[in-house]
Amino acid sequence: MTVPVLRLGRTLIVTLPSAVSDTEMLELQDRLAEEVGELGIRGVVLDVSVVDVLDSFATRTLRGIAQTVRLRGARAVIVGVRPEVAFSMVRLGLTLEDVPTALDLEEALDHLDRATGGGTGRGR
């Protein structure tokens, strides 16, 4: 089962399913690394709004994906961390550190627009 990735101009919107396997996460990382380069993607939105548990592994992998995307020349934003998940993460001692976060998709796209100087190609 592949993780759904939607393309919106020069932005990719990745919707992570509620229970995603380690293998799928790593495959996603590879796939994004490729597509960002090939398609000239400027921004990647990682939507975790249906993810109910972000443990240390998942968090590390998300940060890894964000880093990979940045190394390939795009910006990443994590969107939709649920209140309970945010609470659980800080209790665990996890942060997303250098990865920007946004409350919802609209804010994420606004953020990417500002960060890339309108380069996401959303045409607003």
């Binding site: 969107v79 209140p83 998940v85 945010a86 800080v90 942060t95 976060t101 946004a102 804010e107």
Partner: peptide, 12 residues
């Protein structure tokens, strides 16, 4: 501090 960090995770 924990509250602030958690809020940041939600983009606030």
């Amino acid at each position: 501090l924990q509250t602030v960090r958690a809020a940041r995770l939600m983009g606030a």
